[in-house]
């Protein structure tokens, strides 16, 4: 049996959409909301909810600004988020190695 104890896994990241958001943000310096939406194929509402959860856990930081009077929201992974994502990857790898 190779089942994994979910208590050991980070449930903030362990959701398909949040994992994908973290994978996007760890690959770039910072990204706009529309870029993340395009990369993970999510709806605005759904994406906002998951981004908020990551933000509440300090895994990502948010920067809001106006460019030519249009609101722009940029997201960036934090050190806490980076560490959590790396640990998550290590856990997945340890499951595969069993």
């Amino acid at each position: 049996m190779t089942d994994f104890n979910y208590h050991e896994i980070d449930d903030v990241i362990h959701s398909r959409i949040r994992t994908a958001i973290m994978a996007v943000l760890i690959s770039v310096d910072e990204a706009e909301f529309t870029f993340i939406r395009e990369k993970i194929n999510a709806t605005d509402g759904n994406l906002s909810v998951h981004l908020k959860k990551l933000e509440d856990n300090s895994y990502i930081s948010v920067k809001k600004e106006f460019v030519d009077r249009k609101p722009i929201t940029r997201y960036k992974i934090t050190e806490i988020g980076r560490k959590a994502f790396e640990d998550y990857i290590k856990k997945l790898e340890s499951i595969i190695k069993r």
Binding site: F4, T19, L92
Partner: peptide, 18 residues
């Protein structure tokens, strides 16, 4: 529960997105 196949799938999706 997360078994070996699911973990592999999860990792391959992460790699693809990255």
């Amino acid at each position: 529960n997360l078994n070996k196949q699911q973990a592999e799938l999860e990792l391959s999706l992460i790699r693809k997105v990255m």
